[in-house]
Design a protein around this nucleic acid. Sequence first.
DNA 1: ACTCTGATGCGCT
DNA 2: GCGCATCAGAGTG
Length: 217
Amino acid sequence: MGERILARDFFDRPAPEVAPGLLGRVLRHGPVAVRLTEVEAYGPPGADPASHTYRGRTPRNAVMFGPPGHLYVYFTYGMHYCANLVCLPEGEGSGVLLRAGEVIEGAEIARTRRHRPADAAALTRPGRPLPERDLARGPARLAVALGIRREHDGADCCAGPEREFQILEGEPVDPALVQAGPRTGVSSAADTPWRFWVAGDPTVSPYRRHVPRTRPG
DNA sequence: ACTCTGATGCGCT
DNA sequence: GCGCATCAGAGTG
């Protein structure tokens, strides 16, 4: 039942319609599965200044203009990957950013991915293990937990159980529990309430307003 | 709990 | 060159 793959038609609608319906759905990549608790919609060219597709098609955002139900993976801040699910028919350029979720399968693998051995001092420090709820709390953390990398840009999530990624039906969230508000960290269209999350869920990321950086000097 | 900052690659103007 | 759809760690209350 909840293990069925979402039909591609599900994504063949505007992102702000798709986004709230994605809450409670499950994205699986091999042994790790994440139940989505927070998402953001991004509109097609011209309509949404915060969207990567606002100024039209480029090599980077090309997948967003492809068929729905595929992963658009981008690299940002010189160190993070984030993932969207493409919406609307081919040629439109719209999607839903996957902002946070609950790891429901493969938590140990996810924890290994999220742990960084780079800081040698941290290994000798007592520190507690990373809390379960933080494994995929935030778009870049979610990407790490699921092992999403640059090469997965364009991966089809609706094609079948033999494919690397699947978006599963899961248990859609009661609409009464869905909350909506402004998107996180965007520098424009901050008044557009296209962020959707599950009320009271601890895996939802803390809201951060965009703050412009001033460089030294 | 909160606020501030540095790290870091690259797409776009 | 500027500005990111960010995060972790340090500092403070």
